[in-house]
Design a protein around this nucleic acid. Sequence first.
DNA 1: TAACCTTTGAAGGGA
DNA 2: TCCCTTCAAAGGTTA
Length: 474
Amino acid sequence: MQLVLLLPVVKVSWEDWEDRNELFREYGNLFCPRIRTDTQDLDPYLLPGPSNKVPVVQHAHHVHPLTPLITYSNEHFSPGTPPSHLSPEILDPKTGIPRTPHPSELSPYYPLSPGAVGSIAHPLSWFMQQQGQPMYSIPPGGFRHPYPALAMNASMSSLVSSRFSPHMVTPPPHSLHQTGIPHPAIVSPAIKQEPSGDNISPSMHAKSPVPSKKEEDKKPHIKKPLNAFMLYMKEMRAKVVAECTLKESAAINQILGRRWHSLSREEQAKYYELARKERQLHSQLYPGWSARDNYGKRKKRKRENKPDSKPEDFSIRSKKQCVQYLPSEKMCDSPASSHGSMLDSPATPSAALASPAAPAPTHSEQAQPLSLTTKPEGRMHHHFSVPGKASGSASSSSSSSSSSSSSSSQPSIAIPVGTLGSQSSTPILTRPIPFTSLHPSMLSPPSPFHQAALHSHHSLFQSQPLSLVTKPTE
DNA sequence: TAACCTTTGAAGGGA
DNA sequence: TCCCTTCAAAGGTTA
């Protein structure tokens, strides 16, 4: 019934957004914060803010109205807890009594098109018709999960409905849902780089939602399932953007990377668990798919073709330096622990899940003005020749490759403040914070909406005192 | 217009 | 087994 309220909304302005935030809070995250029916500038995973990206399924012309807003909700993150729909966090707006949410609440970010509202029965209805009969062909063995706990319970339902569905689990005859919803993991090569050739498993010969002429010569691109951190980023990106008023994803990602390390084991475990489910679901949806299939989809980076240029030569690089992002991140982000407790973070998902109940170290202490951040040596793209870098703490692990294994195998090694990274890492000295990059929100906790949207499991930010910093004029 | 940037994690392949 | 590479998201930036 609440859904009716949103049905007329076709394009939501910021004012609408604010209004709907209220509804969002009131009705238990029932509504997707961004409902737009135009096929462009849709970002299903972001809450507020603009976006030019198309959802996982990048078929702008055939994006189902429901597609754009599919995302994860906090309700998904309840490993070891009762199914999300049984979460006591979902309270009846009127009675305040825990209740079983409306089916649509399992995918709270689903956009509800006017015509779809009344017909929504269950988030998995698209997937499995009544009586458990799959609407779409299921891989051999159906959805038998090696892990009993994953046997398509409510949590799984949320997962499926959030990312791999409805358009996700499509398969067979074609990759289109009855409703014409494309599979989110299948991206038209026309959009996703050059076509590949035979990288699609038989079960994926889904019909592309784009015109048939394209589908003939271009096969869909099955994307990799998102890992825990990617899931975390999807959920938190909008929050960071709102807080920091940053738009560069590189900067946002740096912040998110640090926040990721700031999360407790339990919190990370949620994402690891979710990612594990994603992978499992993905593997079941595409039994023959391999991550290798997507190799070469992206053109090699130019950097790799420039071995001659000195990577450490700061001046040579014309690209924006990552150091430009770090400062603001420091201010906006929940700083890393000063006692190096980040190193206690599980180096691997298994480690994180191994002891989900382990005491979660708090990582809310203030970072040093001049912090060190780490990047896995193997993925190091930049080697900065910042004055003072060579000297000092950063030099401790400046030697390259050997550090990768050592840091992961010896997590107890003390690394200067701000050094993060669960994997092999090398500290990188960052520049002081440019004042111009600061914003009041950078020192502020999440907005009330975000806090509400994130419920309480992101207590990390909720504990932050609210402070205001005026942004100096340039 | 496409690659780059930036993050972490998963996966694959080579040594 | 270890190490390296690639890709996943995202959007501004850059060539």
